[in-house]
């Protein structure tokens, strides 16, 4: 369960999250929608632990553990996974080396033995086949020269290997064509369990046709302004965010 409680955050003196609260229960898929500049990506970065954000007050509890007290790598080892809107290119770092380092770093943190190379390779093979990731991609430097769709698939592959307790998908649909969107969504759906929750951040309803949410929240002015079921996304698709933009202006 992810609980965000009364989170107040600013960047360079500008308030972005405004007493923000949200709970995502075990196994729940919650979607956050909202206009540009309303703080959606800030929320994902603050939870994952990116610097440059000033957290004034509030808590982010993952299964009762306050993530804000620890470094980003510890948050990941505690079970948090952020799929990036724009996964970074890391020249010179072989994809396989990176994946193995990440998996074993998390295992070490949890006091588990390192995976042997053959076991690890087997896991990677199964997960990458499912996502249609070609083996030559695995031999290249991480995300270097990958298309937008390939980068997103690589991020989902990481999620599959790291088996987090909770996943945040930050605008996973941006830069994806229909086929890639379907593959990525299927990848995410196959990771849904009774225990594992997701927070799906998106502008568009389209992604939610593939990853069907249990709840939809509308965010504006740094907080949740409306909550409903999946039908709320369809409504927003028709009406747009115009009525919420006013409240954002008021908050700013």
């Amino acid at each position: 369960m992810l609980e965000v409680k009364n989170l107040n955050v600013s960047v360079a003196g500008r308030k972005i999250l405004n007493d923000f609260s949200l709970t995502v229960k075990d196994g729940e898929v919650a979607a956050i929608m909202g206009p540009n500049g309303t703080g959606k990506s800030t929320l994902s970065y603050v939870i994952a632990g990116k610097k440059d954000y000033e957290v004034h007050s509030g808590e982010v509890l993952l299964n009762g553990f306050n993530l804000l007290d620890v470094e980003p790598d510890v948050r990941a080892s505690k079970g948090l996974f952020l799929a990036f809107q724009y996964p970074l290119e890391i020249p010179g770092v072989a994809t396989m080396t990176f994946l193995k380092t990440a998996v074993n770093a998390q295992r070490k943190h949890r006091g588990e033995p390192e995976l042997s190379t053959p076991d690890f390779m087997k896991k990677v093979k199964v997960a990458s086949d499912k996502l249609g990731i070609k083996s030559d991609m695995m031999k290249r430097a991480l995300n270097v020269g990958f298309s937008g769709g390939e980068k997103k698939r690589m991020d989902i592959l990481q999620m599959a290997l790291l088996e987090p307790a909770f996943g945040i998908l930050d605008e996973t649909d941006s830069g994806l064509d229909i086929d890639a969107l379907r593959i990525v969504s299927e990848g995410v759906n196959s990771l849904r369990t009774e225990k594992r929750g997701f927070l799906v951040i998106t502008h568009y309803q389209r992604l939610l046709d593939y990853i069907v949410p249990d709840t939809v929240h509308v965010m504006s002015g740094g907080k949740i302004v409306r909550t409903g079921g999946k039908e709320l996304a369809l409504e927003l698709e028709k009406s747009g965010y115009a009525e919420y933009a006013t409240s954002e202006a008021a908050a700013a």
Partner: peptide, 12 residues
């Protein structure tokens, strides 16, 4: 880039 790696569990 460091943040991306950290976000996957790799210490600083």
């Amino acid at each position: 880039q460091i943040f991306y790696l950290q976000a996957r569990g790799i210490p600083y």
